[in-house]
């Protein structure tokens, strides 16, 4: 369980995370949605100790993220940021192997190798595993970074816009993989998504942010409604139910 209590963060005068309290239960896929600048990335960075928590507390499985040693936390929680650049010259396999660092501190065991090969297979990276990161397409690189985080094999996986740059096929495959990881291995996957239909079809819960606050939260049927979407994004949407899943049409 991740518990956020009265967390706030401001840049200068503007509060970008405004007294947020939320409990994210263990297990399942949770999607975080909201307009650009709503504070999603900031909240995720605070939960994952990439940013300090100036006010309030964040605990993961009861561990306070600001005081728990980083290497302990790294075996329970992993984070992928929205944009990732790297100056080091790495191959895809090297990058993915770094995911094992919290467990083996750079000395890869046979078990680590197993994890690495499995993740490469799951993310269909076999063909590019030996290539350098700067020789990949945007989507291939994105999948390599996701692979590193999944290779870390933590109970909580936080991903900021993981579908960036992915084509339709790979986006669907990725969401299915997250679903399967959550169901089979009892992981908690927390995603920032801009495609509300992906959020609707694959999440157990959706959390919607607006102006630094949690505006709505609940199962997809409660969130994917014209009223909530208007409130969160300021657009009119028609909601259709297809094969038991809610789909929002907002293209006109």
């Amino acid at each position: 369980m991740i518990e956020v209590r009265n967390a706030s963060k401001s840049y200068g005068e503007t509060l970008v995370v405004d007294d947020v309290s939320i409990t994210l239960p263990a297990g399942g896929v949770i999607s975080l949605i909201g307009a650009n600048g709503a504070g999603k990335s900031t909240l995720l960075s605070m939960i994952s100790r990439l940013l300090p928590v100036p006010a309030g507390t964040v605990t993961v499985e009861g561990m306070d993220v600001t005081t728990t040693p980083g290497d302990v936390l790294a075996r329970h929680l992993s984070i992928l940021r929205q944009d990732n650049q790297m100056t080091a010259r790495l191959t895809v396999r090297d990058l993915i192997a770094f995911g094992r660092y919290p467990h083996s501190k750079g000395r890869l065991t046979v078990e680590d190798q197993g994890h690495i090969e499995r993740v490469i297979r799951y993310l269909e990276l076999e063909a590019v595993a030996h290539r350098f990161l700067d020789e990949l397409s945007g989507g291939q690189r994105q999948r390599a970074f996701i692979a590193m985080v999944l290779c870390q094999d933590t109970d909580y996986v936080l991903l900021d816009e993981p579908l960036n740059n992915l084509d339709v096929k790979h986006a669907v495959a990725m969401m299915k993989l997250f679903r399967r990881t959550a169901d089979e291995f009892r992981k908690t996957i927390i995603l920032v998504l801009h495609d509300i239909n992906f959020a609707s079809c694959y999440s157990d819960r959706i959390v919607a942010m607006r102006n630094g606050r949690i505006a709505h939260q609940g199962p997809p049927e409660d969130i994917i409604t014209p009223c909530v979407i208007r409130d969160v994004y300021g657009v009119e949407a028609n909601i259709h139910e297809i094969d038991g899943k809610r789909v929002a049409l907002y293209f006109r």
């Binding site: 980083g70 290497d71 984070i79 992928l80 990732n84 790297m86 770094f98 919290p102």
Partner: peptide, 17 residues
Amino acid sequence: DVLALGRDAAINLGVDH
């Protein structure tokens, strides 16, 4: 090697950056 990945990746991997 981990520090070369950048601050955020290093922290994610548990290094006291």
